[in-house]
Amino acid sequence: MVQMASVVFAPSGHVLSWGWFSIELANLLIIAAMVLLFVVALLVPFGRRHAGAPVGHRPADEGGDQS
């Protein structure tokens, strides 16, 4: 019963508001973490580079086929 009450009356999350725009703090932090991860993925070098590595031939790219 106590557990049930704690579910029913659980406090809602912190909500940030700027005029008409409002967002829950947890959602804002997740979005910020995703943007940070995106930027890090663009900037951080990926392992060793194999310059001049041969590339597979893709005949499908030569025609106009979009299937």
């Binding site: 993925a41 990926f46 194999h50 590595a53 597979g56 893709r58």
Partner: peptide, 22 residues
């Protein structure tokens, strides 16, 4: 799928970036 491209063991050099991992 073109021959050899179903499970390729080599990729172009530009694939060596974390953004291609997602």
């Amino acid at each position: 799928v073109p021959p050899g491209q179903a499970l390729p063991d080599r990729q172009p050099v530009y694939v060596s970036s974390w953004i291609y991992v997602f």
